[in-house]
């Protein structure tokens, strides 16, 4: 159905999404952007997984699809906990940005 050439654009964009997410996670201080960065990294990984599976001709491999569905559900759960924790932190931090160094408690 789709020969190897077909998968290449998505391989590249999957890798770029992963790398952009990683870079944003490290450099952007705001917690909401960090949570978005996680999801973008996850989507990048899933894109790499599924484009590899789409390279073969014939029936696409069901296992990566199952893995990606599991990954999406796990990602939404982790996002929900991260957002709930961020909302609890907001009154303490004031700006919802992580202070750079560990607090000198």
């Amino acid at each position: 159905m789709a020969e190897s050439l077909h998968a290449w654009p998505f391989f590249g964009s999957g890798v770029l999404l992963f790398v952009l997410g990683l870079h944003a996670l490290v450099t952007r201080p705001h917690l909401l952007i960090k949570v978005l960065a996680f999801n973008v990294m996850g989507s990048g990984t899933f894109m790499v997984l599924l484009s590899a599976a789409a390279r073969g001709s014939g029936e696409p491999d069901p296992v990566p699809q199952a893995l990606v569905i599991t990954g999406i559900v796990v990602a939404v759960s982790a996002t929900a906990v991260a957002l709930a924790l961020m909302l609890r932190l907001y009154p303490i931090l004031g700006g919802a940005g992580l202070p750079p160094g560990p607090p000198e408690d």
Partner: peptide, 8 residues
């Protein structure tokens, strides 16, 4: 809470 966020 701050430690938990950083850990997460």
């Amino acid at each position: 809470l701050l430690a938990a966020m950083r850990y997460l």
